[in-house]
Design a protein around this nucleic acid. Structure first.
Length: 159
DNA sequence: GCCAACGTTGGC
DNA sequence: GCCAACGTTGGC
């Protein structure tokens, strides 16, 4: 049993929100459409079933981590890449030679309150998070155990 | 709506 | 293999 890892997934809530995830059958969705190699490597190589996911709303009001999810299916080829009807087609990726990967995540808990980007920036314990690093645009980022604990604790404070 | 940051593309 | 142009991300 590998050690549990922690991640942060960004999503624009106007495209797909945490409450959308909670409305899915079994609160589970395929996290498809990632088209960045560094994020792809995390999806393909590093994620394991059971890993924790902080769900972050970007370009939102407020910008915040709004809940927790977990990986329920580790990396497998992203079939939307060779689906010409998808919003992120990539004809270079094929079933025989996939380039892009996805995971399945299951929504676990909506926080009692959003943990805002502003609070994250103001918290010295979270100063090293990739999220607040200048120019860091990765939509999937690793998070340390300590950062996970801190954010979950903040989110579970009374609402 | 702006624009800094930065990844990707393509001409050479 | 360099690098200018271009596209995207995402906070402001």
């Amino acid at each position: 049993m590998p050690e549990r890892r922690y991640w942060l997934f960004k999503s624009e809530p106007t495209a797909y929100s945490f409450s959308d995830l909670l409305k899915e059958p079994n609160r589970t969705a395929e996290w498809d459409g990632v088209r960045n190699y560094q994020a792809r490597n995390f999806l393909r190589d590093d994620m394991q079933a059971g890993d924790g996911v902080l769900f972050y709303h970007s370009s939102a009001n407020p910008m915040a981590v709004v809940g927790a999810a977990r990986i329920v299916k580790p990396g497998y080829p992203d079939s939307t890449a060779w689906d010409p009807g998808s919003i992120h087609p990539d004809p270079k990726s094929t079933p025989d030679s996939p380039i892009w990967y996805m995971v399945d995540i299951q929504g676990e808990k909506s926080f009692n309150r959003p943990v805002t980007l502003e609070e994250i920036k103001a918290n010295p314990r979270l100063k090293d998070m990739l999220l607040v690093r200048r120019g860091m645009r990765l939509s999937i980022q690793p998070v340390t155990r300590a950062e996970w604990d801190e954010i979950v604790t903040m989110g579970e404070q009374g609402g």
